[in-house]
Amino acid sequence: MITGVSCLLFSLLIMCIGGNQFDPHLFPTTGPFFEGWYMRITDFDRRDSIGLLFGHVLPKQGINTSDPLVMASILRRENCQKKVCQLVSYNAMFTPDQTKVTVNGKPVISNPDDASLANFQFEMNSGSEGGLFTQNANSTTFDFRIGNLSLRGELGPSVPWAPNGGGPEGWLSHLPLPLHWFVYSLRSPLKIYDLTDIERKQTILGHHGVAHLEKNWGLSFPKAWIWAEGVSDYNKNISFALSGGLVQFSFFSLTAYLIGYRNPFENIDINFRPDNSVVVLQNDDCKREVNITARSLFYTLEINLFSTNSSFSSCLFGPQETGFRKACVESYDAVAKIQVYKASVLGVFVHKLIDKQTLTDIALEFGGTYDCGNMCMT
Rank of each mutant, 00 (worst) to 15 (best):
Q357H: 12
D285R: 08
N104T: 05
M124C: 09
V101F: 08
T140I: 12
V345H: 07
T134A: 03
D113S: 15
G105I: 03
K191L: 13
F33D: 08
R187A: 15
A224P: 07
P28E: 02
H208T: 09
T95V: 00
D45R: 11
N271K: 14
V350Q: 08
G19W: 02
G55T: 07
S253N: 12
S158F: 00
R152W: 00
G218C: 07
F34V: 01
E266G: 03
S253F: 05
R46I: 04
R152A: 10
F306N: 13
R288G: 09
S307F: 05
A336T: 05
Q202H: 14
G318H: 05
Y184L: 07
Q248I: 03
K223T: 14
Y184G: 12
N304V: 10
S126C: 00
A336K: 05
G31E: 06
S11H: 07
N263I: 06
K342H: 03
G55D: 06
P319A: 15
K100I: 08
R152H: 01
K236A: 10
S150E: 07
L353F: 03
G373D: 05
F349C: 04
R76G: 01
C372V: 13
G323K: 06
N271Q: 11
M375P: 00
L13A: 11
P24R: 01
V247K: 05
E214Q: 14
P59C: 05
P107K: 10
Q81H: 14
S232D: 01
G31P: 04
L305Y: 08
L190Q: 11
N304C: 03
I63C: 10
G260H: 13
E321I: 13
D114N: 14
P28D: 05
G105P: 09
A294D: 07
G147K: 03
K287G: 05
G165H: 02
K356E: 15
N304Q: 09
S128N: 14
R46K: 15
S110R: 14
T293L: 04
V57C: 02
T308Y: 06
C7D: 02
G373K: 04
S128Q: 10
P59G: 06
D233L: 03
S310L: 12
K356P: 02
D43R: 10
